[in-house]
């Protein structure tokens, strides 16, 4: 704890990308996932693999209606709610503060 630079020196600088994610702890974040999925929810936990725990989550899934003729597929969205959600990091594309 009592490092040479004194306590708090470790976190005094935000150097790494995940330090930015830390700022969003307990804040509402926007998460983009593989497979045309997006999440919005309060960030309760994360780790270096981008594993996440989100609370009061709304998931949005974008689906293209595949029509026989091809093309002209209409994008449909489906929304799902979850009170508490663990998200495995390997699906995560980006995490953004919901400012």
């Amino acid at each position: 704890m009592a490092s040479p630079e004194g306590p708090g020196a470790v976190t005094s600088s935000v150097n790494e990308p995940l330090d930015l994610v830390r700022l969003s702890l307990n804040e509402v974040v926007f998460v983009k996932l593989r497979g045309d999925r997006e999440l919005k929810g309060r960030l309760h936990a994360y780790d270096s693999h981008c594993n996440l725990v989100l609370g009061e989550v709304e998931e949005t899934i974008y689906m293209v209606d595949e029509e026989e003729e091809g093309g002209n597929g209409e994008v449909r969205t489906m929304k799902k709610q979850s009170e508490m959600l663990f998200v495995r990091g390997d699906s995560v594309v980006l995490i953004s503060p919901q400012a």
Binding site: G8, V10, T11, S12, V14, R22, L23, S24, L25, E27, P97
Partner: peptide, 9 residues
């Protein structure tokens, strides 16, 4: 937010 995290640390 940075200040708050500093507080927590």
């Amino acid at each position: 937010l940075r200040s708050i995290e500093k507080v927590y640390s």
